[in-house]
Measured scan of single mutants.
Amino acid sequence: MKVIFLKDVKGKGKKGEIKNVADGYANNFLFKQGLAIEATPANLKALE
Rank of each mutant, 00 (worst) to 15 (best):
N20T: 14
E38P: 14
N20C: 15
A42F: 08
K15R: 12
G16D: 04
F31V: 07
K12A: 14
K45P: 05
K7N: 07
F5G: 00
K7L: 10
K10I: 13
K45H: 10
E38N: 05
V9G: 00
L44R: 06
K7A: 13
K14M: 12
L30T: 00
F31T: 05
K7T: 12
V9M: 05
N43K: 06
A22C: 12
A26L: 06
G34D: 06
M1D: 02
G34Y: 08
L47S: 07
I4W: 02
A36I: 07
K45Y: 11
K7P: 00
A22H: 13
E17L: 02
G13E: 04
K2C: 14
K32S: 11
T40R: 03
A46P: 05
D8T: 12
V9C: 06
D23G: 13
V3E: 01
G24M: 11
L35K: 04
G11H: 07
G16E: 01
A42D: 12
V3Y: 01
D8A: 07
I4H: 01
F29D: 06
V21S: 02
L6N: 00
A46K: 13
I4S: 00
A36E: 00
N27L: 15
N20V: 15
E38C: 07
V21H: 02
Q33M: 15
L47A: 09
L44T: 05
G13T: 02
V9W: 03
E17N: 05
E17T: 06
G16I: 01
A46W: 14
L30W: 05
K14Y: 12
N27E: 13
L35Y: 12
N20K: 12
E38W: 06
E17H: 04
L44S: 04
L30K: 00
K2D: 09
V3I: 08
F5P: 00
F29Y: 14
V9H: 03
N27M: 15
L35S: 03
M1W: 05
A46N: 10
K45E: 11
K14A: 10
A36K: 00
K19T: 07
N43F: 08
K10A: 14
L44N: 04
I4R: 03
N43Y: 06
A39W: 10
I18D: 00
A42V: 09
D23L: 15
P41L: 11
N43T: 08
G34P: 00
P41E: 13
K15H: 05
F29T: 08
Q33R: 14
L35H: 05
Y25G: 04
A46M: 14
V21F: 08
K15Y: 06
I37V: 12
K15A: 12
L47T: 07
N20M: 15
A39S: 04
K15E: 07
G11C: 09
E48I: 14
I4D: 00
A22T: 13
K7F: 13
G11W: 08
N28S: 12
G16W: 11
L30D: 00
G11L: 05
L35T: 03
A42T: 10
D23E: 15
N28W: 10
A39T: 01
G11A: 04
V21D: 02
V3T: 00
N28H: 11
A36R: 00
N43G: 05
L6H: 00
Y25E: 08
G11R: 05
A39H: 05
L35G: 01
M1F: 08
A46H: 11
K7V: 14
K32E: 09
E38V: 08
L44C: 09
N27T: 14
A36T: 00
K10M: 12
A42C: 10
N27C: 14
V3H: 00
G24P: 07
I4N: 02
E38K: 11
N20D: 13
L30G: 01
G13Y: 13
A39Q: 00
Y25R: 05
V21Q: 01
K15C: 11
F29V: 13
K15S: 07
K2F: 14
K45C: 09
T40G: 04
L30R: 01
G24T: 14
N20I: 15
N28K: 11
E17F: 03
A22W: 10
K12G: 13
G16M: 06
D23R: 15
A42M: 09
A36F: 03
K19D: 03
A39D: 01
V3P: 00
M1E: 02
G13D: 02
A46I: 13
T40Q: 04
K14T: 09
K32Q: 09
F31K: 05
K12Q: 15
G13S: 04
K15N: 04
E48C: 14
L44E: 04
G34Q: 07
M1C: 10
F31E: 02
N43M: 09
K14S: 09
E38T: 06
K15I: 09
F5C: 02
D8N: 11
A26N: 05
P41M: 10
G34I: 03
A46F: 12
G34V: 04
A22G: 11
I37A: 07
Q33Y: 15
G24Q: 13
L35C: 04
V21C: 08
K45M: 13
D23W: 15
K15V: 09
L30E: 02
L6E: 01
K2G: 05
M1L: 13
A26M: 05
L35A: 05
G34R: 07
E38R: 11
I18S: 03
E48Q: 14
A46L: 14
L30H: 01
D23K: 15
V21K: 00
F5Q: 01
I4A: 02
A46R: 13
V9L: 06
Y25V: 08
K12R: 13
F29H: 09
D8R: 07
K32I: 12
V9A: 03
G16Q: 02
M1V: 14
M1H: 03
K14W: 09
G16S: 03
N27D: 07
I18N: 01
N43E: 05
F31S: 00
D23P: 15
I4V: 10
N43S: 08
K19R: 10
L6P: 01
E17W: 05
L44M: 11
I37G: 01
M1I: 15
G11T: 05
F31Q: 02
K10N: 11
Y25M: 06
N28I: 08
V9K: 00
D23Q: 15
I4K: 03
E48M: 14
V3N: 00
K2P: 08
A39L: 06
K2I: 13
L44F: 06
Q33T: 10
K7I: 11
F31H: 01
I18K: 03
I18E: 03
F5K: 01
I37N: 01
L35I: 07
A42R: 09
A26P: 03
A22K: 12
A46S: 10
K14N: 10
F29L: 07
N20Y: 15
T40P: 03
N43L: 10
F31R: 02
I18H: 03
Y25C: 07
E17M: 07
D8M: 05
A22E: 14
K19Q: 08
G24A: 14
P41S: 10
K14R: 13
I4E: 00
Y25S: 05
A26T: 04
G24D: 15
E38M: 11
F31W: 03
V21M: 07
Y25A: 05
N28F: 11
T40W: 02
G11Q: 04
A26C: 06
K32P: 15
V9T: 03
L44P: 02
D23H: 15
A39I: 04
D23F: 15
A39R: 00
L47F: 14
E17Q: 11
N43I: 09
K14H: 10
F29Q: 06
I18F: 04
A42G: 10
K32M: 11
E17Y: 03
D8L: 05
V21N: 02
F5N: 01
G16Y: 09
F31P: 01
M1T: 13
G24N: 14
Q33K: 14
G24H: 14
A46V: 10
L47Y: 14
N27W: 15
F5W: 02
L47D: 03
K32D: 07
K2Q: 11
N43Q: 07
G13R: 00
K19S: 08
M1G: 02
K19V: 13
A26F: 14
E48L: 14
G13C: 06
V3R: 00
K12F: 15
K2R: 14
N28T: 09
A42S: 11
I4G: 01
G34E: 07
G16L: 05
Y25W: 09
N28M: 12
L6W: 00
A36W: 03
P41D: 13
K32N: 08
D23A: 15
K10H: 12
N20W: 15
M1S: 05
A42Y: 10
K14L: 11
K2M: 14
K19P: 00
E48V: 13
K19M: 12
N28R: 13
E48T: 12
K10D: 12
I37R: 05
F5R: 01
K10C: 13
I18A: 03
P41Q: 11
V3Q: 01
N20L: 15
N28L: 11
L44Q: 06
K45L: 14
F5E: 01
G34L: 07
G24S: 14
F31Y: 06
L47K: 06
T40Y: 03
K15M: 10
K14I: 09
V21G: 00
G16V: 01
K15F: 06
M1N: 03
K7W: 10
K12D: 08
K7S: 10
K12I: 15
V9E: 01
Y25F: 11
G24R: 13
F29I: 13
A42N: 10
A26I: 05
A36L: 02
G16R: 03
V9I: 08
L6K: 02
G11E: 05
L44D: 02
K45D: 07
N28D: 13
G24E: 14
I18T: 06
P41C: 11
Q33S: 09
G11V: 01
A36Y: 01
N27F: 15
K10L: 13
N28P: 03
A39C: 08
E38F: 05
L6G: 00
E48Y: 14
K12Y: 15
G13M: 04
K19C: 08
Q33W: 15
D23C: 14
K45W: 10
A39M: 06
D8K: 07
V9S: 02
L47M: 11
F5T: 01
P41W: 11
I18L: 06
L47H: 10
